Computed example of a mutant assay.
Amino acid sequence: MSQISYKDAGVDIDAGNSFVENIKPLVKSTKVPGVMGGIGSFAGAFELPKGFNEPVMLAATDGVGTKLKLAIDSGIHNTVGIDLVAMCVNDLICNFGTPSFFLDYYATGKLDVDVATNVVAGIAEGCIRSECALIGGETAEMPGMYSEDDYDLAGFAVGVAEKSEMDRVSLVKAGHKLIALPSSGLHSNGFSLARKVLFEKMNLDFNDDFNGKPLIETLLTPTNIYVKTFKALKDKIVAMAHITGGGIVENLPRVLPENLRAEVKKDSIKTLPIFDLISKHVDEDEMYRAFNMGVGMILVVEEKDVDFVLSNAEGSYLIGEIVEGDREAVMV
Results as ranks from 00 to 15, higher is better:
Glu258Ala: 13
Ala290Tyr: 04
Ile179Ala: 12
Asp14Lys: 14
Ala121Arg: 15
Ser188Asp: 00
Val309Thr: 05
Val238His: 08
Asn118Arg: 07
Gln3Gly: 07
Asp149Cys: 01
Ala45Gln: 14
Asn207Phe: 08
Phe275Ile: 00
Tyr226Trp: 07
Glu125Tyr: 08
Gly34Tyr: 07
Asn224Thr: 01
Gly137Gln: 08
Thr79Gly: 02
Gly34Pro: 13
Lys304Glu: 14
Ile278Val: 02
Met240Thr: 06
Met145Gly: 12
Asp326Met: 04
Arg168Val: 15
Tyr317Leu: 08
Glu263Ala: 07
Tyr317Asn: 10
Ala161Asp: 10
Gly245Asn: 08
Ser316Leu: 05
Leu153Asn: 08
Pro49His: 05
Asn312Pro: 03
Leu70Val: 10
Leu256Glu: 11
Ala180Asp: 14
Thr244Leu: 06
Pro257Ile: 09
Ile128His: 14
Leu48Gly: 13
Pro25Cys: 14
Val119Cys: 09
Phe291Trp: 05
Leu198His: 01
Thr223Met: 01
Glu263Thr: 05
Val282Ala: 06
Ser164Ala: 06
Cys88Ser: 09
Glu303Asp: 11
Lys24Ala: 14
Asp112Val: 00
Cys127Ile: 08
Lys28Leu: 01
Ala161Val: 12
Ala45Arg: 12
Gly296Trp: 00
Leu310Asn: 02
Met142Tyr: 10
Thr223Ile: 03
Val323Met: 01
Glu217Trp: 00
Thr98Phe: 15
Ser183Phe: 11
Leu252Met: 08
Ile322Thr: 11
Asp150Ile: 07
Leu68His: 06
Ile128Phe: 08
Leu252Asp: 06
Lys173Leu: 00
Leu181Ala: 07
Ile269Gln: 00
Thr79Arg: 11
Ala60Glu: 01
Ala124Ile: 13
Phe101Tyr: 01
Asp83Glu: 09
Asp149Val: 08
Cys88Gly: 10
Arg289Leu: 05
Gly247Gln: 10
Val80Pro: 03
Thr61Ser: 13
Gly137Tyr: 11
Pro49Ala: 11
Pro143Asn: 12
Glu141Gly: 03
His242Ala: 10
Leu103Ala: 12
Lys163Cys: 02
Lys31Tyr: 04
Gly126Trp: 02
Leu134Pro: 14
Pro99Val: 07
Glu250Ser: 07
Asp112Ser: 07
Leu272Asn: 02
Cys88Val: 10
Pro99Arg: 10
Asp114His: 13
Asn95Asp: 09
Ala124Met: 06
Ala262Pro: 01
Lys213Gly: 02
Val300Asn: 06
Leu277Arg: 02
Arg129Lys: 15
Asn22Tyr: 13
Tyr105Phe: 14
Glu217Pro: 00
Phe308His: 15
Pro222Gln: 03
Leu318Cys: 07
Met287Cys: 05
Tyr105Ser: 12
Gly315Lys: 08
Thr223Ala: 04
Met57Arg: 11
Val20Lys: 13
Glu302Asp: 00
Gly16His: 09
Val119Glu: 01
Gly212Tyr: 10
Glu131Gly: 14
Ala329Gln: 04
Lys265Leu: 10
Ser188Leu: 05
Asp149Gly: 09
Cys132Val: 03
Ser279Thr: 02
Ala15Ile: 03
Gly10Thr: 09
Asp12Phe: 02
Val120Arg: 00
Ala9Gly: 04
Asp112Ile: 02
Leu256His: 08
Gly155Pro: 00
Pro25Ile: 11
Glu47Met: 13
Cys94Gln: 14
Gly97Asn: 11
Ala45Pro: 02
Ile274Gln: 00
Ala194Arg: 08
